[in-house]
Amino acid sequence: MGEAQLGLPLPPLTLEHWLSVWSYLPTLLQGLSVNLALLGGLLGVGFVLGVIVALLEVYGPRGLRLFAAGYAWVFRSIPEILLLLLMWFGPAQFGLSISPFTAAVLALGLRSSAYQAEIFRGALQAIPTGQTLAARALGFSRLQAIRYVLLPQALRLSLAGWGNEFAVVLKDTTLAYAIGVVEVMRQARYIGSRDFPLTLPAYILVAMLFLVVTYFGLFLLGNVEKRLRIPGLEARR
């Protein structure tokens, strides 16, 4: 490696290249739908586990707090690609066979849960203690106070951070190809490997698809945030 070097220009891309890559759009869209399914699955797994871990970190007894902190540390430290491979090969050691898709949802979901837990933890800790006191004084149990008072506030406060997580993990779904999930990046490579000159146009088309999905996803989340906005309950920065 070392010093930057000027490469020869690739054979020029012609209009014909763009037209023929355009004809692959349905294939790419089908691949993208796999990414979106992965995204839905991993955000769901990450949300449920993230909320639980955040609650344990903030309200759990000491032992569970340590466990939750360790959990977040582990899943934030291991590279995604490694988590994917571990989740795919690991269960086979115990005679469990899970499909590449399930393995990808679990691996990326566990990782996302660690990040989502940090978002929710911050939000929970931003809620004044008076809210808990008021709930307990009314006769709410600890769990009820969390369920009806703290979580609804924390989740609203988390929306901005959550939007960021959405944009990050959407891109992570392209890593699932490594364990055999045929998603959009894999489809783009198929195109490139049968039609070498289309490699670059296919990648550019995929990039544009991600731009569009991210734009609409964030737009949608922005609307949700607006609809759920409550005066006096904003993320304090």
């Binding site: 809210q131 008021a134 006769g139």
Partner: peptide
């Protein structure tokens, strides 16, 4: 919890549920 439901408590800072 059952006892607290029978005892009202009014705080200095109101502590209304913000949401």
């Amino acid at each position: 919890n059952r006892i607290r439901a029978q005892i009202g408590f009014v705080f200095q800072d109101f502590n209304l549920f913000t949401h």
